[in-house]
Design a protein around this nucleic acid. Structure first.
Lengths: 112, 112
DNA sequence: TGTCCATGCCTAGTGAAACTAGGCATCGTG
DNA sequence: CACGATGCCTAGTTTCACTAGGCATGGACA
């Protein structure tokens, strides 16, 4: 998957994953990988700073839990996060429609 | 239109515009603006360096013409440019399908 | 006649976003 | 007991598009 294209869309992806329920960073990474069937296999250096940024922005709330001896930081969407997700989805759709208008490439779920 | 999302998609847009026939830089800018109904209103500082880069990469060929007293540099898609455009379209579709898989946002031409 | 806007080209430096590459710790398995 | 998977973190780099400036011509309008 093209890395450059990800720019500007990372928040959308993270918020969408967390929409299905709270998760910790590592689970977000694996969840993203699974949902996209390997398409989005993002490094930790991308995910963790982004989660911190989203929390800083008030879109996520986090709390520490311990599973066995491993500490996890679990993130949950805040109400502002839900609103931001909706805005991100709309923004993505606007952009993708622009691309369609210029290139003629439409996108649905099914492969060609 | 979100500026960050453009990253990685600029070549696709430029090549797609030039697919309809040769054009000079300024015409690419206005063509892009019209096709997207104002969505992609990109500054010259974005377009010109990108066209130079694409020519350097062998995807475009250019020649100077003069219209009245105004000099224009007209760009044409090379065969490699056509192939690159096809690859860009495929890359975009792959990416957009990944986004769909994660977020559920499908994109067709028609607005909601 | 002079000024201003659209046309038309260009580039050095900035800024924003994700990534690289490293560090640290625990747990299970061979 | 070593190594991979789990799990967290951050400083610095890279990679893109953009900002902000420069330059020139032609037409319209005062």
């Amino acid at each position: 998957m093209d890395k450059e294209r990800l720019k500007g869309n990372l928040d959308l992806l993270l918020l969408a994953v967390l929409e299905d329920g709270p998760a910790h960073g590592y689970a977000v990474i694996t969840g993203l990988r699974e949902r996209s069937e390997g398409g989005f296999d993002l490094p930790e250096g991308t995910i963790y700073p982004a989660l911190h940024r989203l929390e800083q922005a008030g879109l996520l709330a986090s709390d520490w839990t311990t599973n066995g001896g491993r500490r996890r930081r679990t993130y949950t969407l805040t109400p502002a996060g839900h609103r931001a997700l909706a805005a991100e989805r709309a923004g993505w759709q606007r952009f993708a429609r622009g691309i369609f208008a210029v290139t003629g490439v439409a996108v649905t779920g099914a492969p060609a």
